[in-house]
């Protein structure tokens, strides 16, 4: 058992953080040049042949940077449905995709192609009109597609389970990046702001919620990285791990941002401070796709109804009398 990133993965994180700090609004071509668009795409398709774990590092950093662009839509959402030639075009930086999994489609302003889910498979949308909608989170544009029809068939609908797990995990990782930065802002403020003659971080009404926020961030990361490993290795537990990660990390990022906003007082409530943008991304992640409540209903069903036969460890409560 080894739950650490390799030095190469750590270096990728460092590179990502530096690059995104210097280039807050990178183009798709720039991401392709860095090799980010082809991370998990096979070498024969022009990718790096690495895994979702390297992409996990990037999703966390992209979340932290509140990156606006079709990386999630292309890599986190649509990729499993795409054919070899489409993947090659993504790796080379020529094209981008999004997938209409529900009525609200992410990154519809920037993604070149749109995939849709038909009865038995996933198809490329032909024709149709795109309408952009106003979204609370300005860093992740949403829209709807009207009309059009299924064109090229891309994949069997069996790929949907993989898409669900992958996209939920990507969102959980983004949520971790968002929550970390919000927490850092709050720690910095609580360590310097003085009221009643003391730094406010000495007041436990300030510091204990921050300790709890830290706890939620670490627990979120543990779930998100577990899910990422499951997705990368096609593990049996990928679906339930992704559901756990998305529900917990999404809700936690919202809670952590709320704690941070409170810790900053009036400044936390302003448009100028980045907390409002982090908060809105967190809210966007929480509401994207399947809600935490719905995911937990699925988890409960798999624990209570489905695992009974398969898992010997879920034996009935056994207690000895006395003692």
């Amino acid at each position: 058992m080894d739950f650490t990133f390799t030095p190469v993965q750590e270096a990728l994180r460092e590179q990502a953080r530096e690059f995104l700090a210097a280039t807050p609004e990178p183009t798709w071509a720039q991401l392709a040049e860095l090799g980010w668009t082809g991370v998990s795409i096979a070498e024969e398709d022009g990718g790096a042949g690495l895994s979702f774990l390297e992409e996990a590092v990037l999703f966390e950093e992209l979340g932290r940077a509140l990156y606006r662009g079709p990386y999630f839509a292309t890599i986190g959402l649509t990729l499993p449905a795409l054919l070899s030639e489409d993947r090659a075009a993504i790796a080379s930086g020529e094209t981008t995709w999004t997938l209409a999994l529900g009525p609200l489609v992410p990154d519809l302003d920037s993604a070149e192609h749109v995939a849709i889910v038909g009865g038995d498979g996933i198809y490329e949308l032909e024709g149709g009109e795109r309408e952009l909608l106003a979204a609370t989170d300005e860093s992740r544009p949403l829209g709807v597609v009207r009309g059009g029809e299924p064109g090229r068939r891309l994949a069997d609908s069996t790929v949907l389970a993989e898409i669900e797990a992958r996209s939920q995990t990507a969102l959980a990782l983004e949520a971790c990046g968002v929550a970390w930065l919000a927490l850092e802002d709050a720690i910095e403020y609580a360590s310097s702001r003085v009221q009643f003659g003391k730094k406010i971080g000495v007041y436990q009404a300030v510091s204990h919620p921050l300790a709890d926020a830290y706890t939620r961030v670490e627990l979120s990361r543990s779930l998100a990285l577990w899910a990422a490993w499951c997705v990368a290795t096609d593990d049996d537990q990928a679906s339930i791990a992704a559901a756990a990660a998305k529900s917990y990390a999404g809700e936690s990022a919202v809670a952590v941002c709320e704690t941070a906003i409170q810790s900053l007082g009036g400044i936390g409530f302003t448009w100028e401070h980045r907390l409002q943008r982090l908060y809105k991304r967190a809210l966007g992640i929480e509401s994207f796709g399947t809600s935490g409540t719905r995911l937990r209903a699925e988890i409960a069903a798999s624990l209570i109804e489905q695992d009974e036969a398969s898992s010997g460890s879920l034996a009935p409560v056994k207690v000895t009398q006395g003692g």
Partner: peptide, 23 residues
């Protein structure tokens, strides 16, 4: 059932947090 799933989720989170710390 929602609370059971919550507790299971958090228990898994503690497990993998321990793994990270151990690694």
């Amino acid at each position: 059932r929602d609370r059971i799933a919550r507790e299971w989720t958090e228990m898994q989170a503690v497990r993998f947090t321990n793994y990270r710390s151990l690694s």
